[in-house]
Nucleic acid binder design. Structure first.
Length: 201
DNA sequence: ACGGAGATCTTCT
DNA sequence: GAAGATCTCCGTT
């Protein structure tokens, strides 16, 4: 019955894979025109650090990935394919450049706002992908480097009802086939809630 | 249902 | 100069 409990620095200051697992069921909240527009996190991916070949941090410190060196709980938002903003949350103790990608949401509050922003699409296409959900919640480069642990800002994450292990599924990450090789392929990097129709496909 | 291609532009080589 | 942590549309089956 916890309500509107903001996730703080300590939550994010852990191994990115633990944070990813625990973000399932949490609620991403966006304040738009004074209203709460939110979704339950149903799919995530972890990107570790310089030893993870698929991670941006693998290249070392660059202008783009600089936010990953901020304190845990900051947003790392970047543009892919010239068109889609992707939202990550910085994890691990500060100085270790790791992050979790928010891949899919189940719409909760402000569904009329989301529907308007995703006009012409069906409910299941509103937020079922990392590029879709940023459009649905109006998340962009303007939110890069934002501290998500600050109460009542533009964007933050609240604790939700914990998803039991029996409902958690894992698998390889999506969209980077040629980068991922052993031993990383044998480890869990993507988590989602079983049977949830808002998971990307 | 499934597959292929185009959109669009920043980043790093 | 090429590729990219994607999505949508259009074709065919």
């Amino acid at each position: 019955m916890t309500q509107h409990v903001l996730l703080g620095r300590a939550f994010y200051a852990r191994d990115a894979r633990e944070v990813a697992r625990d973000l399932l069921g949490a609620v991403l909240v966006r304040r738009l025109d004074g209203r709460r527009v939110s979704g339950r996190i149903v799919e995530v991916e972890a990107y570790r650090t310089t030893d993870d070949q698929a991670a941006h941090a693998h290249a070392g410190h660059t202008p783009r990935n600089a936010p990953m060196w901020e304190a845990p709980g900051h947003a790392y938002v970047y543009l892919v394919y010239g068109m889609y903003w992707l939202l990550n949350v910085v994890c691990e103790p500060q100085g270790t450049p790791a992050a979790v990608l928010i891949r899919a949401l189940e719409p909760l509050e402000g569904q009329d706002v989301i529907a308007a922003r995703r006009a012409g699409r069906s409910l299941l296409a509103w937020t079922s992908g990392p590029g879709k959900l940023t459009r649905a919640l109006d998340i962009s480069g303007a939110h890069n480097r934002l501290d998500l642990t600050v109460p009542n800002a533009a964007l933050w994450i609240e604790a939700g009802e914990r998803v039991p292990d029996a409902q958690v599924r894992t698998g390889p990450r999506i969209g980077l086939g040629k980068h991922v090789r052993e031993p990383w392929l044998s480890m869990p990097w993507r988590w989602w809630i079983a049977e949830n129709p808002h998971v990307s496909r």
